[in-house]
Simulated scan of single mutants.
Amino acid sequence: MSPLTLYTHPMSRGRIARWMLEEVGQPYDVRLLAYGPDMKSADYRAINPMGKVPALRHGDLVVTECAGIIAYLADTFHDAGLHPQTDAERAAYYRWMFFAAGPLETAVSNRALGFVVPEEKQRMVGYGSYDLVLDTLEQALSATTYVAGERFTGADVYLGAHLMWGMQFGSIEKRAAFEAYVARIESRPAHLRATELDDALAAELAPAAKG
């Protein structure tokens, strides 16, 4: 089997990719990259020209972007059962995976940066407004146990991570539907393992960062 290597930093979106790797249950190596010259080095830019983490190498193949990494792992390792298995699941899985990668992340990032789209120009941006994005997501999560239906999938890793971090740091409003959804997934063994591993790595890096 081709080796899996995760290029990451414990205080980055790499935590999402780590969670998915733990869900998949396949062995993988971790290459830690520091912010700055390390991520912008020629060697790493040959893997990801953006000079950002995470990136996943699977043998000679490279996948970047968290949503892409999750979808790739779900499709590649079917035994984990994280890919959509019915037409209904597939429709919801792709719908909400891309909703999180597009409207949700853009709306949340813009709000955190203090950028508000004027009401008369909201039709020019894919997400419309921050409130519209959250209202739409709240409606979806109020209707099902998981975002693609009644079964946990890779889409829940991606969306769940956004909601966990967003509510923790105040960039996403704490709504009852969001909190109930997060409560259903945050205690998953794979998430707990991934969190423990990244928290430990972050603790090791802390003294170096202070120095």
Score class of each variant (00 low, 15 high):
residue 41 S to I: 08
residue 93 Y to V: 00
residue 53 V to S: 01
residue 154 G to F: 12
residue 126 G to C: 03
residue 60 D to A: 14
residue 196 E to M: 10
residue 46 A to N: 08
residue 95 R to F: 00
residue 29 D to W: 00
residue 135 D to G: 07
residue 30 V to L: 06
residue 71 A to D: 15
residue 208 A to Q: 14
residue 88 A to R: 14
residue 176 A to R: 10
residue 142 S to Q: 11
residue 185 I to E: 06
residue 24 V to G: 05
residue 65 E to S: 11
residue 10 P to F: 07
residue 130 Y to N: 07
residue 99 F to A: 08
residue 89 E to D: 06
residue 23 E to T: 04
residue 116 V to P: 06
residue 185 I to K: 05
residue 38 D to V: 13
residue 3 P to W: 00
residue 175 R to P: 04
residue 46 A to C: 04
residue 14 G to S: 03
residue 48 N to Y: 03
residue 197 L to V: 15
residue 102 G to Q: 07
residue 143 A to H: 12
residue 89 E to V: 00
residue 130 Y to L: 07
residue 177 A to S: 15
residue 65 E to N: 12
residue 54 P to A: 00
residue 41 S to K: 03
residue 111 R to K: 15
residue 107 A to M: 09
residue 37 P to M: 06
residue 99 F to D: 12
residue 67 A to F: 04
residue 50 M to A: 14
residue 202 A to W: 05
residue 39 M to A: 07
residue 190 A to G: 11
residue 118 P to F: 10
residue 159 L to H: 09
residue 61 L to A: 10
residue 187 S to Y: 05
residue 171 S to N: 03
residue 185 I to L: 10
residue 127 Y to A: 03
residue 90 R to C: 03
residue 199 D to E: 15
residue 116 V to Y: 07
residue 102 G to M: 09
residue 155 A to P: 02
residue 208 A to T: 10
residue 113 L to G: 04
residue 126 G to H: 11
residue 62 V to R: 08
residue 84 P to H: 07
residue 10 P to T: 11
residue 89 E to M: 02
residue 178 F to N: 02
residue 4 L to G: 10
residue 202 A to N: 12
residue 114 G to H: 07
residue 193 R to N: 13
residue 24 V to N: 04
residue 206 A to T: 09
residue 176 A to H: 05
residue 88 A to Q: 13
residue 207 P to A: 09
residue 7 Y to L: 01
residue 134 L to V: 01
residue 164 M to A: 06
residue 134 L to D: 00
residue 53 V to K: 00
residue 188 R to I: 09
residue 4 L to S: 12
residue 123 R to L: 04
residue 31 R to F: 00
residue 165 W to G: 09
residue 208 A to W: 07
residue 128 G to W: 02
residue 173 E to Y: 00
residue 117 V to Q: 10
residue 97 M to I: 10
residue 184 R to Q: 11
residue 120 E to V: 09
residue 145 T to C: 06
residue 54 P to L: 01
residue 161 A to E: 12
residue 203 A to I: 03
residue 62 V to P: 10
residue 182 V to P: 09
residue 103 P to E: 14
residue 189 P to G: 12
residue 25 G to W: 05
residue 100 A to E: 12
residue 13 R to K: 05
residue 150 E to S: 12
residue 51 G to C: 09
residue 82 L to V: 08
residue 63 V to T: 14
residue 9 H to A: 01
residue 11 M to F: 09
residue 134 L to R: 01
residue 33 L to W: 07
residue 156 D to R: 13
residue 78 H to C: 07
residue 182 V to K: 08
residue 21 L to S: 10
residue 97 M to F: 08
residue 77 F to P: 11
residue 141 L to N: 07
residue 134 L to W: 01
residue 84 P to L: 01
residue 168 Q to H: 12
residue 127 Y to M: 04
residue 199 D to F: 03
residue 103 P to K: 07
residue 205 L to K: 09
residue 10 P to W: 01
residue 1 M to V: 14
residue 9 H to G: 01
residue 148 A to M: 08
residue 55 A to G: 11
residue 109 S to Y: 06
residue 185 I to T: 10
residue 132 L to Q: 14
residue 140 A to D: 02
residue 121 K to Y: 11
residue 78 H to G: 14
residue 40 K to D: 02
residue 161 A to T: 09
residue 14 G to R: 06
residue 137 L to H: 06
residue 92 A to D: 11
residue 18 R to F: 00
residue 149 G to H: 04
